[in-house]
């Protein structure tokens, strides 16, 4: 990724940004997020198949913000996350520089939000193929079968909230699960409370999930919880013809009412 490295180098050198958020080689053959502030260290930036984490989660992290303006290596899901964060006024477009990476792993020059918007418009915004397959399988199941599938999966949940923490859209300083007046969701990890939690998470991400699959990937006990939010993304697309994160001025699907909305979902 010569272009990526030289662009990062240039941005840091010219002090156009104070930090570059990208990927570096990690331990035991993994890739991991890197935060580069020194132009002489941009050489450690990598991009390959192992670089799957959604880096947009760091744009709202306190310690990363302390650096100042950030450049961020962004694949399609990360770009869409950035669009959502700008739309929801968590990130200001002028504070970030996007170092685009195409689906083929090639560097793409993203000169500004409009360019990013145009790029996103050329992409397939549906759920990833392998997840679509699983979702199709789940959708074929009877209600009882679906319920049993999820009860089995959710019984594993240990409430570590890795799904929430890994999600760029879960930036609330106090999550609904931590509000206790009233206590919406039981604190303990039991089947009932776990189910409540994952339903709540899916609902809060409806119309906001950009199908990166990060929540499922982060889960230490392998619950495919990304299928819940991806299903919501599908539903939102079916009913409202909206994919999240296509522009920097997304309105909130779940709290915007249009005269031509289909209402069959309230059945």
């Amino acid at each position: 990724m010569i272009n990526l490295v030289s662009r990062a180098d240039e941005l840091l050198e010219s002090k156009a940004v104070q930090v570059v958020i990208g990927y570096e080689a990690g331990s035991t053959g993994k890739a991991r997020p890197a935060f580069i502030t020194d132009p002489s260290k941009t050489g450690s930036l990598i991009f390959d198949d192992r670089c799957v984490q959604n880096l947009a989660v760091y744009l709202t992290k306190k310690e990363v913000r302390y650096f100042g303006k950030a450049a961020i290596v962004a694949t399609l899901p990360i770009m869409r996350s950035i669009m959502m964060l700008i739309s929801e006024q968590q990130v200001f477009a002028e504070n970030i520089v996007v170092l685009g990476v195409s689906a083929e792993g090639k560097y793409i020059d993203i000169a500004g939000i409009e360019v990013m918007q145009q790029y996103i418009a050329t992409c397939d915004l549906g759920n990833p193929a392998k997840d679509q397959e699983t979702l199709a399988m789940l959708n074929k199941m009877s209600t009882q079968q679906k319920f049993d599938f999820w009860q089995k999966e959710l019984s594993k949940c240990i409430k570590c909230y890795a799904c929430r923490q890994a999600c760029p859209m879960c930036y609330c300083t106090r999550c609904a699960v931590e509000c206790n007046q009233p206590q919406w969701i039981p604190v303990q990890s039991n089947l009932h409370g776990n189910t409540d939690w994952h339903i709540l998470r899916a609902m809060h991400l409806a119309g906001r999930c950009i199908s990166c699959g990060e929540c499922g990937r982060a889960c230490p006990v392998n619950i495919p919880c990304h299928l819940l939010t991806m299903h919501m993304a599908d539903q939102v697309h079916n009913y409202f013809n909206v994919y999240a994160g296509t522009t920097d001025k997304m309105s909130s699907v779940m709290s915007t009412f249009e005269p031509n909305d289909k209402e069959s979902f309230i059945q």
């Binding site: 997020p33 935060f35 570590c160 890795a162 923490q165």
Partner: peptide, 17 residues
């Protein structure tokens, strides 16, 4: 501590396993 925990997302996975 700051340098090496920038990427930590603050979940409880490490503690719970």
């Amino acid at each position: 501590w700051v340098e090496n925990s920038l990427r930590c997302i603050g979940c409880g996975a490490c503690a719970y396993v």
